[in-house]
Amino acid sequence: MSDFEERNVQCVLKILRKKNPATTKEIMAMRDLFPDLCAGCSSGGDVILAGKQLVEEGIVKRKWTVEGFEWKLLSDPDK
């Protein structure tokens, strides 16, 4: 994983530690809290990719709701 990707993974984890679960919209709005980690274009595609990677690793679960996807941190890899 590149440093850039790793930073975005940490971005998603930090946000979910603050608000769990969170919708994509909420995650995007909270990127401002961690400007050094939430890297990439403001459109947020890099953050989504990082989130999907965490889903694949079983660390985060994603489900569809009427407000879009909801992301839930299942097990914190840093704990």
């Binding site: 994509t24 919209k25 995650i27 947020g44 595609g45 989504i48 879009g68 996807f69």
Partner: peptide, 15 residues
């Protein structure tokens, strides 16, 4: 304005 644009694209890609 209820959801982020990334969710719209993801819905059509995956759901």
């Amino acid at each position: 304005d209820s959801m982020n644009h990334n969710d719209v694209t993801e819905y059509f890609n995956e759901m």
